[in-house]
């Protein structure tokens, strides 16, 4: 066999090999890889932290009498809001305290109940988040217009949920011919549970 013929064979073999490789690559190229990757997924331990926004609150005074009406400040801690002594002298006199309930925990909270406690030795009637004790009405409202707190959304969202509430003490009865006995220790207890 001549050298020239051998070279031809080599060329043919090479070309055919390249054709096979090319077809194989072309045939095998029909493939796609898709990837989904997560970054950091953090699980933090749940915390419960629902309470009042602490501070001292000055009352907004209502009514028409210029004398004999005194609205003490409210001292607010996480769990308690305590109102100093107040004197209401005429029908329409009122003291309104703007408070805020906060949820700084990682669990949403629901307002489960509002429980009134009557002032000592005074009988009262209750309705929603208000109680009428003689000439005095105590109530918790959701806004300055006086809407009952129980009409507000009950869920306090986790981490940054807040609910403004108003504590109102108002002289709603008739004029008195003589001073009535002071009413002491009236209170509301709000209970929040996990949503």
């Amino acid at each position: 066999m001549t050298k020239g013929r051998i070279n031809v064979y080599y060329v043919i073999i090479t070309v055919l090999s390249l054709a096979i490789v090319g077809l194989s690559v072309g045939y095998a190229a029909l493939s796609t890889t898709l990837k989904v990757t997560f970054g950091n997924v953090t699980q933090a331990v749940n915390t419960w932290n629902v309470g009042f926004k602490p501070g001292s609150v000055t009352a907004e005074v209502g009514g028409t009498s210029d004398t004999g009406r005194v609205c003490g400040n409210a001292t607010v801690t996480t769990n308690t809001a305590t109102v100093d002594a107040a004197t209401l002298s005429k029908p329409g006199d009122s003291c309104t305290y703007a408070l805020t309930i906060e949820n700084k925990g990682s669990i949403a909270a629901n307002l489960a109940s509002i429980t009134p406690t009557y002032p000592g030795e005074t009988s009262c009637t209750t309705s929603g988040a208000s109680m009428v004790c003689g000439n005095i009405t105590y109530k918790l409202t959701t806004d300055s217009s006086g809407n009952d707190l129980l009409t507000a959304p009950k869920t306090l969202a986790a981490t940054s949920g807040t609910l403004p509430i108003y504590l109102v003490v108002e002289y709603t009865g008739e004029d008195l011919s003589e001073s009535a006995s002071p009413q002491t220790n009236a209170s509301f207890t709000l209970t929040y549970n996990q949503a």
Binding site: T33, L34, K35, V36, T37, F38, G39, N40, V41, T42
Partner: peptide, 8 residues
């Protein structure tokens, strides 16, 4: 070809 979810 790629989906990357950030931090959760």
């Amino acid at each position: 070809n790629i989906v990357s979810i950030g931090n959760l």
